[in-house]
Design a protein around this nucleic acid. Structure first.
Length: 813
RNA sequence: GCCCGGGUGGCGAAAUGGCAAACGCAGGGGACUUAAAAUCCCCAGGGGGCAACCCCGUGCGGGUUCAAGUCCCGCCCCGGGCACCA
């Protein structure tokens, strides 16, 4: 059949040829305005680091690209944009380290990244590229800020930051190592209070949580988000002092109220001042000062030894009527609940430790089976299965869950309590006392106060600043550039001052998916019509490392814009799947570990298609795995085999040979393969989709295939090895792109075999296999099974006691 | 500590409660070759047997079932998230 000389598969020339063709033909372009079946295929845009693209990026993008190509072949109009997330402390620190300005560095990095991404063969529509550092982009980031400000969701508030006295600058939490500065290992990091901008995300907590239940998202991602939101149901209860002060505590265990033997307030609690007695004042003040100086990280995760001071005052336990001492301790945090707790040392581990250290009374109020009111407590017993209330007159014997409601209700009746829900989620601080970010578009005027920059004056361009090193002013380096921050007030015209902090990088990425379809527009952030047409995003694939911040903030911004009437959906991502992590030698790839794998060398040696498929074949896409290059040759061998099949059965032969020449078995296998590849590709089971194609190719080579059996293979391969598939498609006699071919259909009836192998078990053990026609009825199957010599050996001719028959599968005797 | 995942050949991995190990890598044997590479064919969980075959096997211990890698209970180990959150 093959008259031509065999041309070996040369990935380099094939890939060069098709990348050029795609560009010339606009193969990857989406018709945004005219699409009839829009499918927005999104992948998390990269931070263009100086090291260039790494294997983890390729793994992520290829997996997403396969979805995009697959949906396109299935008939959708796919829009697959890409961009670069290049603002932020990461870029800034790197720039400081190498002594090159980020404005110079970033475009170079982007250039390199774009080149690498193109070589991978993504179906990206580069006409809609976005760069967060481009004033044409961040103009609209600032606009988003103004919309949230308008909605009352952006507020300025005093908040603590980490401060390194040696660097004289604000540190991010990750720059604080065990309470010390990462650059000055012997300098203790302190806490400083600064005025900062916050987005009030907390009122959205319940909505953000509720939508997770129905979201088509990875299970792991939903769990992580739900934990981060951290809903807990409890009650606020009031303890009164003899002086008439009401101390409100939050507890999730109101049922243990009778065991509350003391109160603890956060050292910063506003009531502490008034509660402290004269003789305790010196100690209390010293303790409060010590805690105030502590850096934010140590306060929460540092040494957990319990410390605290007695205020000298007492309050009345509303259940027992007893007087309980009021303490302060750093283990109680001002930002959670009411900043005050009732301590139940018998049933809370921290309270137990504190009570033991301070010699405070410990009382049992819950007893499990086999315990009673007097069973001693050697440690806190927090979760007692089947626990019942004891030592609590009026509630004794009650299951604790029931007592929770009963005690809360009883206190509510006396105006001393109510059920309350708390969330761990904190408001989002977006102020950064840094240079490399979009300036927050606010102007402060002595007369008019806080004035938002009028939208017509956007963007507030980040000025070129030669020395952008942070300094000891506690504000952004922009505060050094008087010519920039001195501006007339937009309201009254008098001299005013710009906000000199820039916004958090996470704000840049919290709305970029809205920007892509309108990336070519300068008059709007996002066009209403295009947004309605293309959003919410149909498929979003990215790493779980962004499960918390990026995804949460994107959802919040979208909800806020929805509430402002600017978009008509509340959730930005209809479907989200987290890909796994590619590690190397069991560890995350990082430059400091020296285990970063650069994809270029692999693309050079094997070609993008082989490399793409290899990464997808490593293991389940949603699990990731350890990168080893052993085995990459297996993929290449597979592609060579396909190449050979195309060579032999392609060209004019493809059409000439009808399916007449195809054996029934091979035809069935083709349908079965199409079914498996279709289902597995849709569910991101790329490794098994590839395995199915391999099995098919092996079968074609063992049999006598017709060209019509080879053709569908080129289309099935297109999402995985796009250049290769194009070349095969052309060699099969087609003149248009394989990406414009229709995904092959399978006939479920043809995909199943006519003859099946029936497994015969005796007492649950496999003893024989019978070939029998599909649909063999029970009587016939059992008869055949009993007649089988190897079955006879075990039944010894005896009549079966019981028979289990699963049609077309097995007979168990 | 709490909340998610996961644990299967030498390795990466497959398996609607119904033939454990598909597919691939590495390995062994053979063909082709002066030779090697490439390619092609065969073997390949462990143990026993001359053999047909038999026994054992999915982290550990129990259980449900005609039948369990898969479901239930209790442990162990690994990965991830949260963590002084009351």
């Amino acid at each position: 059949m093959a008259d031509r000389d065999a041309v070996p598969y040369d990935p380099q020339s094939v890939e060069r040829k098709w990348q050029q063709r795609w560009e010339e033909r606009g193969t990857n372009h989406a018709n945004l305005a005219g699409a009839s079946h829009p499918f927005y295929n999104l992948m998390m845009f990269p931070y263009p680091s100086a090291e260039g693209l790494h294997v983890g990026n390729v793994f992520a993008f290829v997996g997403a690209d396969i979805q995009g190509r697959f949906r396109r072949l299935k008939g959708a109009d796919v829009f697959e944009p890409l961009g670069f997330d290049a603002f932020g402390i990461h870029s800034e620190n790197f720039a400081l380290k190498v002594g090159t300005h980020p404005a110079e560095l970033i475009p170079r990095n982007i250039e390199r990244f774009r080149g690498q991404l193109k070589r991978i063969g993504l179906m990206a529509d580069w006409r809609y590229e976005v760069q967060t550092t481009d004033p044409r982009y961040y103009k609209w980031t600032q606009w988003i800020f103004l919309q949230l400000y308008r909605a009352g969701l952006a507020v300025k508030r005093r908040a603590a930051v980490n401060w390194c006295p040696a660097c004289k600058t604000v540190l991010a939490n990750e720059q604080v190592i065990n309470g010390f500065c990462e650059r000055h290992p012997d300098v203790k990091v302190e806490q400083r209070m600064l005025d900062q901008w916050f987005f009030t995300i907390t009122p959205y907590a319940q909505r953000l949580l509720d939508h997770l239940e129905t979201a088509d998202w990875s299970h792991s991602t939903r769990t992580i988000q739900a934990n981060w939101i951290g809903r807990s149901d409890g009650a606020e209860l009031v303890f009164e002092t003899p002086g008439g002060k009401r101390i409100t505590v939050f507890t999730t265990r109101p049922d243990t109220l009778f065991g509350a033997t003391y109160l603890v307030l956060a050292p910063e609690h506003p009531l502490v001042e008034g509660l402290t007695t004269a003789e305790r004042r010196a100690d209390v003040n010293a303790y409060r000062r010590r805690v105030a100086a502590m850096d934010l990280v140590s306060r929460k995760v540092g040494d957990k030894t319990k410390t605290g001071e007695f205020t000298g005052s007492y309050a009345r336990n509303p259940a027992t009527g007893e007087s309980v001492p009021i303490w302060i301790a750093d283990y109680v945090l001002m930002e959670y609940g009411t900043g005050a707790i009732m301590a139940v040392p018998g049933h809370d581990e921290r309270d137990f430790e504190f009570a033991t250290a301070m010699k405070l009374p410990i009382v049992r109020v819950v007893a499990g089976p086999g315990q009673d009111a007097s069973t001693p407590l050697a440690a806190a017993e927090a979760d007692i299965p089947d626990g019942r209330i004891v030592n609590s007159p009026g509630y004794d014997g009650m299951p604790w869950a029931e007592a929770k409601r009963a005690i809360t209700a009883a206190l509510a009746a006396k105006n001393l309590g109510k059920p309350v829900v708390n969330y761990r989620l904190h408001d989002w601080c977006i102020s950064r006392q840094r240079y490399w970010g979009p300036p927050i578009p606010i102007i402060y005027c002595d007369g008019c106060g806080t004035v938002p920059v009028p939208e017509k004056d956007l963007p507030v361009v980040l000025p070129a600043l030669e020395d952008f090193r942070p300094d000891d002013s506690g504000v952004s380096p922009l505060a050094r550039l008087e010519s920039w921050y001195r501006v007339p007030c937009p309201k009254c015209g008098k001299t005013a001052r710009r906000e000199t902090d820039v916004s958090d990088t996470f704000l840049d990425s919290a709305w970029y998916f809205l920007r892509y379809p309108s990336a070519d527009r300068d008059d709007v952030a996002f066009d209403a019509g295009l947004t309605r047409k293309w959003l919410p995003v149909a498929s979003y694939i990215g790493g779980n490392e962004h499960a918390v911040l990026h995804l949460m903030y994107s959802r919040f911004v979208t909800m806020a814009l929805h509430d402002l009437g600017l978009v008509d959906f509340e959730e930005p991502f209809a479907r989200f799947r987290a890909h796994g992590t590619i590690v190397k030698d069991g560890a995350k790839m990082s430059k400091s570990r020296g285990n970063v794998v650069n994809p270029d060398a692999y693309v050079d040696k094997w070609g993008a298609d082989t490399f793409r498929m290899y990464l997808m074949f490593l293991g389940p896409y949603q699990d990731g795995g350890d990168f080893r290059d052993a085995g990459i040759s297996g993929i290449r061998r597979f592609l060579d085999k396909v190449w050979g099949l195309v060579e032999t059965h392609g060209g004019s032969n493809a059409q000439a040979h009808g399916q007449a020449g195809a054996s029934a078995d091979l035809l069935r296998m083709m349908h079965r393969t199409i079914q498996r590849v279709t289902e597995d590709t849709a569910s991101l089971a790329y490794n098994t989709a590839i395995a199915a194609m391999m099995e098919y190719v092996n079968a074609l080579r063992d049999g006598e295939p017709a060209g019509s059996l080879v053709e569908p293979l080129a289309i099935l391969l297109a999402p995985y090895a796009p250049h290769f598939a194009e070349e095969c498609w052309e060699r099969l006699g087609h003149t248009t792109s394989v990406m414009d071919a229709p995904w092959p259909n399978f006939d479920p009836a043809l995909a199943v075999a006519e003859e099946v192998e029936l497994v015969v078990q005796v007492n649950g053990k496999v003893r024989a296999r019978l070939r029998s026609p599909r649909g063999t009825p029970q009587e016939a199957a059992v008869k055949a099974a009993l007649a089988d010599p190897s079955v006879l050996k075990f039944t010894a001719g005896a009549a079966p006691k019981k028979v289990v028959f699963v049609p077309d599968r097995l007979v168990n005797i």
